[in-house]
């Protein structure tokens, strides 16, 4: 079962003109956001994106951009209070929490 978070909030941008159809984004995305459509990639489930940044990092042709970060309330609140960018709080724990804090 696929869970969805808020609609229309993610910063993911895909520039089809730059896409060379290598398929890397489809492979790396843990949320099934991209699919191949002939020789180009295609955004099929934008709202599923969790802004992890894997696609941007692994697109050899810089066709994707996303403001990557962790969707973690603790980090965002801390970031807002200290005026810094939200930073993952992993350093204090190994994995008890899967994603971040």
């Amino acid at each position: 079962m696929k869970n969805y978070y808020l609609k229309n909030v993610v910063t993911l941008q895909f520039d089809e003109k730059r896409c060379m159809g290598c398929g890397m984004c489809v492979t790396v995305c843990p949320r099934g956001v991209f699919q191949m459509n002939g020789k180009k990639a295609m955004l099929v489930d934008r709202d599923a994106c969790m802004e992890c940044g894997a696609c941007e990092k692994n697109c050899p042709f810089s066709a994707i951009s996303v403001n990557a970060g962790v969707g973690c309330a603790y980090a965002v609140i801390k970031g807002a209070l200290t005026g810094n960018e939200p930073n993952c709080c992993c350093s204090s724990s190994g994995e008890g929490k899967n994603t971040c804090c």
């Binding site: 978070y5 843990p30 804090c101």
Partner: peptide, 10 residues
């Protein structure tokens, strides 16, 4: 923070 599908923007 513990979930695996929330985005920073969200």
């Amino acid at each position: 923070g513990a979930s695996t599908y929330t985005s920073l923007s969200g």
